[in-house]
Design a protein around this nucleic acid. Structure first.
Length: 641
RNA sequence: GCCGGCGUAGCUCAGCGGUAGAGCAACGGUUUCGUAAACCGUGGGUCGGAGGUUCGAUUCCUCUCGCCGGCUCCA
């Protein structure tokens, strides 16, 4: 047997053995820092008897695979503690997740924060008691007998195809589990329970709600502390906190949940984003349109929104016996614009764009600051094209995302190709099985030809077609779809959209829905966190603040302010009677990119002393030069100061 | 929508069965200052809302609204 150690050295062992046997005889030290091994890509633990010809690579505690193993072990330790403290509990599932673990429990009374403390204390005991994790393999029948009082485990067992299944035991606790696990409960000592929350069994809202406890664990005390501190830091860049502090947006109880109000500073950011979108779309030959916020019921019956999207729509208002709905999407209105004129193949691709205002009745518990709201303005456009044009149109849209992301410095994102799940046809998705297959294949081909990295997820498509979603994460780690690029084969048919092809025959166009800049709400929510409130100059609500040192420079400061404004720079003058230090601190906390200090010397020489938001001091500079510099940064949307 | 937690001044928070307090902010005055908090003073709250228990409720109970952590769902 060949064992590759984390430092690259190789250890040989003769005959079959468990990993533990090998390490005990060759390198006992490694028993402390190794949590398992990789055997032909499969992760195995200490307990597996490995064949004589095995070629394994050790997994150390500090590797990502190692972390997943000990975190999973911690979900067992937590379940063990819960079982000791709440004997009537029924166990559901307990996996490792990114940065931690959870376990779902069915308990009579939901856990309180005090319960969490008790559970944590009990877990510490279990860690100290240092039980070995033992693997037991049994037949399914034996397994059923083992878990006869655990309804959730029985359900899980029924779904395991294998004839034999494994259990893991540590001390007084045993759980159905594939493994692998750490050597013993004392091998990793640093953990913390973070929160309790309700969670439906199998994530299905028709099923029973269980109690989920989240926790985190790390190989070292330092790593745990660092992680906890990172969580604290993340809270500081939470857009809900910064949004109010920087006077960007707020919510008002009386206006309603999920209905943000934008302060003037927020409106500035919106205007800048719209300017960017208009410029970009104009270059790409998009045409702007405008549509009303409501429409009659009949249009949403035709579009398919009413059968497939109704639960996300505000209830209708009735006038003169006709029902009107607030629009949850802009597409039907745009389809009407396509249909309003006779279209020829020469008109295609036709790209209709609008920052459309939509309203969606999101369930109250789903609302989340600006990231999930009920009123939103979408960076929307619908591209109508022929089958032949599809690929290049689709890829051009993907390229547009990537260009935007580069501009904003967005590096951490995931392109997700969302396809339909055939079992939901007619329920979540329009019932066109063949068209679904064809369209999805078309998108797959386009993605491959464009060499775009993506993951494919079934069951996440829009009701009218597959889509590419760009996933990002909020400061506190919640995942959101930022941009979206969707293919629609259903609505063009339903709206009877046609164009005359070169042979003079009617053809149905394909429609691409796209929103690379997401909605103003979600995009700005995301940007606030992405920049931690320190927007690049072109987006900063206040780009420069003029700070006269004393009242004697007031006139000159006014002049500087005027010159800045004349150059199109959003500038303010802070001539309040606070000390200079105070005013600098204030500007700094408002994340104003440029602080222009003017004292006696600057006033005499037509200069300003420039302090940057990043605390760099450019010293005294000619006013003209600085104005020129800032104006250039704005015009080129330069991310640097 | 579901499970749990929380709502006290603009913000961060203290208090608690006898009708409210701090710091910062705001406002007034003094200060005129060279790169992250000058000094003094003043005002500000139907303690989220409604009902109940009580001689008396911000405090205890019920309902309701909103927010937060998740689940589900999504731009």
């Amino acid at each position: 047997m060949i064992v590759k150690l984390p430092d690259g050295r190789i250890v040989e062992h003769h005959g079959p053995a468990t990993l533990k046997d090998v390490l005990v005889t060759t390198n006992k030290e490694l028993l402390k820092t190794t949590v398992g091994a990789k055997l032909d890509g499969e992760v195995v633990d200490f307990h597996r008897v490995l064949p004589a010809d095995a070629n394994v690579e050790l997994i150390s505690l500090d590797s990502p695979e190692g972390a997943a193993i000990y975190r999973h072990s911690y979900s067992h330790i937590m379940a063990q503690a819960v079982r000791r403290l709440f004997p009537g509990v029924r166990l559901a599932i307990g996996p490792a997740i990114e940065d931690g673990f959870y376990y779902d429990f069915d308990v009579e009374k939901p856990f309180t924060p005090e319960d969490l403390e008790k559970i944590e204390a009990e877990m510490k005991k279990i860690v100290k008691e240092n039980y070995k994790f033992e693997r037991l393999e049994v037949s399914k029948d034996e397994a059923r007998h083992f878990v006869k009082d655990e309804p959730y485990k029985l359900e899980l067992l029924d779904e395991i195809p294998d004839e034999r299944v494994s259990f893991y035991r540590d001390g007084d606790f045993i759980d159905l589990c594939r493994g692998p696990h750490i050597l013993s409960t004392g091998q990793v000592k640093h953990f913390k329970l973070l929160s309790v929350a309700g969670a439906y069994w199998r994530g299905d809202e028709t099923q029973k709600m269980l109690q989920r406890i989240y926790g985190t664990a790390f190989a070292t005390k330092e790593a745990l502390e660092q992680h906890l501190q990172m969580l604290e830091e993340a809270k500081k860049r939470d857009h809900r906190k910064l949004g109010k502090e920087l006077e960007i947006f707020f919510f008002d109880e009386e206006v309603g949940p999920g209905l943000p109000l934008w302060f003037p500073k927020g409106a500035v950011i919106i205007e800048e984003l719209e300017k960017l979108a208009k410029e970009t779309e104009e270059k790409a030959d998009y045409l702007r349109v405008r549509t009303p916020h409501i429409c009659k019921e009949s249009m949403y019956l035709r579009s398919g929104h009413l059968p497939y999207y109704q639960e996300s729509m505000y209830p209708p208002m009735e006038m003169e016996g006709v029902k009107y709905y607030l629009k949850p999407m802009n597409c039907p209105h745009h389809h009407k614009i396509f249909a309003a004129l006779p279209r020829s193949y020469r008109d295609l691709p036709l790209r209709l764009a609008e920052y459309g205002t939509c309203y969606r009745y999101e369930k109250s518990g789903e609302l989340f600051g600006l990231m999930r709201v009920r009123s939103m303005q979408m960076n929307d456009a619908h591209l109508y094209c022929s089958l032949e044009q599809f690929e290049s149109e689709f890829l051009a849209v993907c390229q547009m995302y990537l260009d935007y992301f580069k501009l904003f410095g967005i590096e951490k994102y995931l392109m997700r190709f969302s396809t339909h799940d055939p079992k939901d046809l007619g329920k979540k998705y329009v019932n066109e099985p063949e068209l679904w297959k064809q369209t999805e294949e078309m998108v797959r081909r386009a993605l491959k030809s464009g060499e775009i990295n993506y993951v494919e997820v079934a069951g996440e498509a829009a009701f009218y077609g597959p889509k590419i979603d760009v996933q990002v994460w909020s400061a506190i780690g919640r995942e959101f779809t930022l941009a979206t690029n969707q293919v629609d084969f259903a609505q063009p048919r339903r709206f009877e959209l046609v164009y005359k092809n070169a042979q003079g025959q009617d053809e149905i166009p394909i429609c691409i829905h796209r929103a690379p800049l997401s909605t103003h709400e979600r995009f700005i929510g995301f940007l606030i966190e992405h920049y931690a409130g320190a927007f690049p100059v072109w987006l900063a609500p206040v780009q420069a603040v003029v700070l006269p040192i004393t009242d004697r420079q007031h006139d000159y400061a006014e002049k500087v302010l005027q010159r800045l404004k004349d150059a199109g720079i959003r500038a303010e003058l802070d001539s309040s009677s606070h000390t200079l230090n105070y005013r600098i601190r204030h500007a700094q906390m408002q994340k104003v990119p440029y602080m222009l200090v003017v004292g006696e010397r600057e006033a005499q020489n037509e200069q300003v002393a420039v302090r940057l938001r990043n605390e760099r001091d450019l010293g005294a500079q000619p006013l003209t030069k600085i104005i020129d510099m800032i104006a250039k940064k704005i015009a080129s949307r330069d991310p640097s100061l």
